[in-house]
Amino acid sequence: MTATTTTATTATKSVKSLKARMLSSRERSGVALALAAVCLIGGSVAAAGRLRDFPVMGGQAARYALATVFLILWARIRGHTFVRPTPVQALWIVLLAAMGMAGYGVVLLHAVSLTAPGNVGVVIGASPLVIVLVRALLTRTRPSRNLMAGALCVAAGSAVPQLTTGGQVQWSAAGFAWSCLALACGAAITLLGAPPTEQLGALTVTTYACGLAAVMLFVAALITRTVTGTPVLRAPTAVEFAALAFLALGVTTVVFLLWYGAIERLGAGRTGLFNGLTPVASLIALSVTGTATATVHQAAGAALVLFGVVLGLRRA
């Protein structure tokens, strides 16, 4: 009887331990939201390529202005009430609009103009590791071993596809500096968006931040025109208009709602791991459109990133 009881108790503990390690239904929905967001971001590569000749500042401003209109219409349909943020929440949202939205797109484009896109990807691929470390510092907690190991795998996997056939990565000082700034702005989307989202909700935070980003970018475009003579905007072609509409509706409006919905369910640390899948999603989108062909390095990096995400999502 004693042996039987002991065996039954051990089996019960094993089942409970297994259940504790499994994702809950809320967490699984968070994974689905994050994956959907990453897929849309990957599809944005082809759309962004159609806007190479369009004014950068003005184009980004128009993108966020359109996104704000879409978000307000969606809020009206849902009967959503926008809550006035507190001064602290407003500060988070302003920083999010400046760094995570307005700043990220402009900085990324400038970094790519100074060095190879693959080199920029090496740096940005470390964003999950940055998010995990910064969140641990802000919350004064030690991240779990699974989360740290997963973040390291994601960062390494993002770097592998950028290696040349000789195993070397060529850097430029200016390109590396701007890539680090792009890394900071990319990580800011999660780090700065998480605190107000937990209190105000994804729709409210995204709408406020998009509106502020549009204003900031329009002002920057006006200043740029005064200094350099670059036009703020021009009439887009049909292809450019379609690209702007996709970036505004799909990549800005929907992606941010999906991403912050995932943060509400998974937390900033585990959601941040999915940033490492963005190069993979971009590669798939480029392969589907016939723009690029996957290499062995890219396939190996994708596998390592996927392993890192799965490892980081596991509970200790």
Results as ranks from 00 to 15, higher is better:
Thr5Glu: 15
Thr6Gly: 07
Thr12Asn: 12
Leu18Val: 10
Lys19Gly: 10
Ser24Ala: 09
Ala37Arg: 09
Ala37Lys: 08
Ala37Leu: 08
Ile41Met: 13
Ala48Trp: 11
Arg50Val: 14
Arg50His: 13
Phe54Asn: 07
Ala61Ser: 06
Arg63Lys: 08
Val69Gly: 06
Val69Met: 09
Leu71Gly: 02
Trp74Leu: 11
Arg84Asp: 02
Pro85Tyr: 06
Val88Trp: 08
Val88Phe: 04
Ala90Val: 02
Ser113Trp: 05
Asn119Leu: 11
Gly121Asp: 09
Ile131Ala: 03
Arg135Asp: 12
Ala151Gln: 01
Ala151Cys: 01
Ala155Trp: 05
Ala156Cys: 11
Ala156Met: 07
Gly157Gln: 03
Val160His: 01
Pro161Ile: 00
Thr164Leu: 05
Trp171Arg: 13
Ala173Met: 15
Ala174Thr: 11
Leu183Trp: 08
Leu183Gly: 06
Pro196Gln: 06
Glu198Ser: 15
Glu198Cys: 06
Thr204Tyr: 02
Val205Asp: 04
Thr207His: 03
Leu212Pro: 06
Thr226Asn: 08
Leu233His: 00
Ala242Lys: 15
Leu244Met: 15
Leu244Gln: 10
Leu247Glu: 14
Val254Pro: 12
Leu257His: 13
Leu257Lys: 14
Trp259Asn: 15
Phe274Thr: 13
Val280Ile: 07
Ser282Asn: 03
Leu283Gln: 09
Ala285Leu: 10
Gly290Phe: 02
Ala292His: 11
Thr295Ile: 00
Gly308Ala: 01
Val310Phe: 10
Leu311Asp: 02
